[in-house]
Design a protein around this nucleic acid. Structure first.
Ligand SMILES: [Zn+2]
Length: 418
DNA sequence: TCGTTTTGACCGGAG
DNA sequence: TCTCCGGTCAAAACG
């Protein structure tokens, strides 16, 4: 039954575009946004093989809850609901960047859609970590430019997506998961599983608020399919200790594709966390589900942008929502070498553990992080942010974009200069 | 008939 | 070595 997992797979993706051969470690703060990288790709696609944890708390209550958790307010989840329309003001967190996401997007779509590109000129201060208020519009259409613009499409209500990323350099983590992306989404109660608005750092400011009404209207259901454009088959579900939400395990249904993901959903069906492991060894299936022209357009774009990777990913990246982030580095993302580019020595070298698929290591390791704040419960509360890490030492980024180095600094706790 | 979901059992890493 | 627990397997159920 096609019902749950996935989107229809209609085409066998073929054209491999040449992926930029890069393998280097690079971390960048906000700038990531500036690139025309698609967020979805980061999360779900092959290009960023790694483990990705995505916490989704869609705006309202979920989000607030998480905030509560983080803040230690002790408020039981789901109890406190914050009106979506209200700007969520997280506890003292430094403002981070926002993405404006069209209301109609489901989480998956978010993932799929082009997100990270945008106003190119915003550069956060590398040292201070302060980032000019940035807003990113989340558009279905992958068009470039859109700074500050809230949304063009009528179809989409505006809701902001904040994303803050931070690079972590934890060697350990890196081993298993070369790159990690974390982002957290809070989902709104009212909405079913689908996530219409994703907001990772809920800092309110920046003037972005999700428009509840529009929001509501344009909500697209993610339903069973985690709409990241790939087809998934659920192969297990388990109640994980420390989490009140059951975790579901999915595999990509594409033959021989090692990509896996695990999804936690709250009782009301909202996705609270998604972790991707590995990468797809195929292009994203042309989805039929996206009916809207715009959507299709976006998908196309995505494909174009993402070179099919043949590689086998070993990496997994985690992306999680952001509730709070470190103010210091707001958004820096480091990408693992492998993923970005398909060929990574890493995978080839085999040095690391990449489980190609094999009966993988049981635990998808990630997030021991330093970053996490431990919650009273047991679960580590992670700071919301998006982190892509790369292992390589190389500074060269060959992601197809041009980068200008504007600073270098030795960061405490990290042996490698940033 | 077939693909997916459900779900208890099993495996194996970690402590 | 034992226990805990996350991840996977696989049979049965489902659509
Ligand atoms: Zn796949």
């Amino acid at each position: 039954m096609p019902s749950s997992s996935g989107s229809l797979e209609t085409s066998a993706n073929s054209h491999p575009t040449a992926p930029p051969p890069t393998s280097s470690t690079f971390s960048f703060s906000k700038p990531f946004m500036n690139t025309s990288t698609y967020f979805s790709d980061l999360l779900a696609s092959d290009h960023y093989p790694a483990t990705t944890t995505t916490k989704a708390a869609v705006v309202s209550h979920g989000f607030s809850d998480r905030v509560a958790e983080r803040t230690g307010s002790g408020i039981p989840k789901f109890k406190s609901i914050q009106p979506p329309s209200l700007p969520i003001s997280p506890p003292a967190v430094s403002p981070s960047s926002y993405f404006s996401i069209p209301a109609g997007l489901s989480l998956a779509e978010l993932l799929d859609s082009p997100v990270l590109h945008s106003a190119s000129d915003i550069l956060p201060s590398p040292t201070t970590g302060t980032i000019p208020a940035q807003s990113f519009n989340w558009k279905r259409n992958s068009n470039n430019d859109q700074q500050g613009v809230k949304q063009e499409d009528n179809n989409y209500s505006d809701f902001s997506f904040q994303l803050q990323s931070q690079t972590t350099t934890n060697p350990t983590e890196q081993e298993a998961w070369n790159s990690m992306v974390k982002s957290e989404f809070t989902s709104m109660q009212a909405f079913s599983p689908e996530i219409s608005s994703i907001r990772t750092n809920s800092q309110s400011n920046n003037g972005f608020q999700s428009d509840y009404n529009n929001y509501n209207q344009s909500v697209i259901r993610e339903q069973k399919k985690s709409d990241d454009g790939y087809n998934w088959r659920k192969y297990g579900q388990k109640q994980v200790k420390g989490s009140e939400n059951p975790r579901s395990y999915y595999k990509c249904t594409f033959p021989n594709c090692p990509m896996k993901k695990k999804v936690e959903r709250s009782f009301d069906g909202q996705i609270t966390e998604i972790v991707y492991k590995g990468s797809h060894n195929h292009l994203k299936p042309q989805s039929t589900r996206r009916s809207s022209s715009s959507s299709s357009a976006s998908s196309q774009v995505i494909q174009a942008c993402n070179p099919p990777t043949n590689e086998i990913p070993n990496q997994s990246y985690a992306s999680r929502g952001i509730g709070q982030m470190d103010s210091a580095e707001n958004s820096s993302i480091s990408l693992g070498d492998d993923d970005f580019e398909q060929s990574s020595h890493k995978t080839k070298s085999g040095g690391d553990d990449f489980d190609e698929d094999e009966p993988d290591a049981k635990r998808w390791k990630m997030e021991p992080e330093n970053e996490g704040i431990s919650a009273p419960g047991n679960r580590t509360v992670r700071e919301p942010r998006v982190v892509l890490q790369t292992r390589s030492d190389i500074d060269i980024l060959d992601d197809g974009y041009r980068w200008r180095k504007y600073g270098q600094k030795v960061v405490k706790g990290n042996p490698n200069p940033r």
